[in-house]
Amino acid sequence: MMKNTVILILLLISGLLPAQENTVEILGKTNVNTFKCTNTSIAKPAGSFSSETKLPVLQLKVADFDCRNKMMTNDFRKILNSEQHPHFTVRFIEFKKNANSYYSAIVEVKILNRKRFYTVTFFENKNMLTGNETVRFSDFGIVPPTKMGGTIVVKDHLELTMKLKNL
């Protein structure tokens, strides 16, 4: 009886807590392994996906990314020079519906004061927009890092995944 009561309370509490609305993940590979750095501390951006005049801009704190490994998280922050460039941004330039739940967006990604434009396809499910795009370290003038005297080499390609509440 007590066990059922605890489970019921936990279910009620979890229903009251706000679900994580916005997430940005960066997935990369090395010649040995894969890594994923996630930022779930994204404030609700100003703007709306339904507004042609004021589309959202995501201001991402580099220090808020977590790679689930302290050393890797520190390396990630160092690669992105978080002390001199504490933020990077994803600015929506264009956002339009293609068909059913698919959207096409042109986004500007700014890292280390370098801007690159990408066309990203988003899919909407349960009022959440999910899109991913391949970016490269080299797009932003970053040489892919190596570790252990070059034994471990990080690949240039990264997958940038955005999961955003449809504003």
Rank of each mutant, 00 (worst) to 15 (best):
K70D: 09
K70H: 09
K70E: 09
M71I: 11
M71W: 11
M71N: 10
M71H: 10
M71S: 10
M72R: 08
M72Q: 09
M72G: 11
T73I: 06
T73C: 07
T73Y: 06
T73K: 07
N74T: 07
N74M: 04
N74D: 09
D75N: 09
D75I: 03
D75F: 01
F76E: 06
F76W: 03
F76N: 08
F76M: 06
F76A: 09
R77S: 03
R77N: 05
K78E: 07
K78S: 08
K78D: 07
I79K: 10
I79G: 06
L80G: 07
L80T: 08
N81A: 13
N81K: 15
N81Q: 14
N81Y: 11
N81V: 12
S82M: 12
S82T: 11
S82I: 10
E83Y: 15
E83Q: 15
Q84Y: 14
Q84C: 11
Q84M: 13
Q84T: 13
H85F: 15
H85S: 14
H85Q: 14
P86I: 11
P86T: 13
P86D: 12
H87T: 14
H87S: 11
H87A: 12
H87Q: 14
F88Q: 08
F88V: 07
F88C: 06
F88N: 07
T89Q: 07
V90Y: 02
V90I: 08
V90L: 05
V90C: 01
V90G: 00
V90K: 04
R91V: 01
F92M: 00
F92S: 02
F92T: 02
F92C: 01
I93K: 04
I93G: 03
I93A: 04
I93P: 00
I93T: 00
I93N: 00
I93C: 02
E94L: 02
E94I: 01
E94C: 04
F95N: 03
F95L: 03
F95H: 01
F95T: 00
F95Q: 03
K96D: 02
K96H: 04
K96I: 01
K96S: 02
K96F: 00
K97A: 04
K97P: 02
N98A: 05
A99G: 04
A99P: 01
A99W: 00
N100T: 03
N100V: 05
N100F: 02
N100R: 01
S101E: 01
Y102I: 03
Y102Q: 01
Y102T: 04
Y102K: 02
Y103W: 04
S104G: 05
S104E: 02
A105Q: 02
A105T: 04
A105E: 02
A105G: 05
I106D: 05
I106W: 06
I106F: 06
V107H: 04
V107G: 05
V107T: 05
V107M: 04
E108L: 08
E108I: 05
E108T: 09
E108W: 09
E108K: 14
V109H: 06
V109K: 06
K110A: 12
K110Y: 11
I111A: 14
I111M: 15
N113M: 14
N113C: 13
N113P: 12
N113E: 15
R114A: 13
K115Y: 13
R116V: 15
R116F: 12
R116Q: 15
R116Y: 12
R116N: 15
F117P: 08
F117Y: 13
F117M: 12
F117N: 12
F117A: 09
F117H: 14
Y118G: 09
Y118W: 11
Y118N: 10
Y118R: 11
T119F: 05
